[in-house]
Amino acid sequence: MKISELFSQFKRINPDPQYSEKSKRMVLSSLRETMPVRERGVMVFLRALETGAALVLAGFFILLATGGFSGNKYLAPVQYAVIDPSGLQAEAQAIDIQIRLANLDYSEVTSTAAQSTTPTISAVMRPLMAAGLGTASSTSGGTASSTSGGTASSTASSTPLTVDQALQALSQ
């Protein structure tokens, strides 16, 4: 038999009518099974969620791969910070600064406390004495300044007084 004849016989092949009818019904019935609107909404939501989640995960792995986040450093049993001398140094320096501030403050507080006691009253009174105010009996500082020259007196008289010094003079 020639091949051309064989092909021409193929043209005459037909499906079994019963099978043909059955498959047609199946195809048509499947088309009628449309999804309810609610379920379609859920599907859309889940797809969006899936896509978003996949993008986030991909971003995370990209960061991990490019070294933007090095998990090893943090997951290691001996944490990196413990042996990080620069971090330690920075923290120790911050403490040093606070200690210096505390010392500074301490000296100021003690000097303020001392100022309220008698020994430094002469220092408060000296410029007032130079200006002819205050009691002559308070200290020898007054005598010393009163005997000093006019230049020293004019310098002392132009030196601004503190609130306490001014009040001290005005209370007498």
Binding site: D84, A94, L101, P127, A131, D164
Partner: peptide, 29 residues
């Protein structure tokens, strides 16, 4: 864990109990 959270120390400015107010011995005189 240690994110270099070293705070800047607060500048402790001692409040001025000894602020001068422009009152001089000359003004008292």
């Amino acid at each position: 864990a240690h994110a270099q959270t070293v705070p800047t120390a607060n500048a402790q400015t001692s409040a001025a109990s000894s602020t001068d107010c422009g009152i001089t011995p000359a003004s008292l005189a």
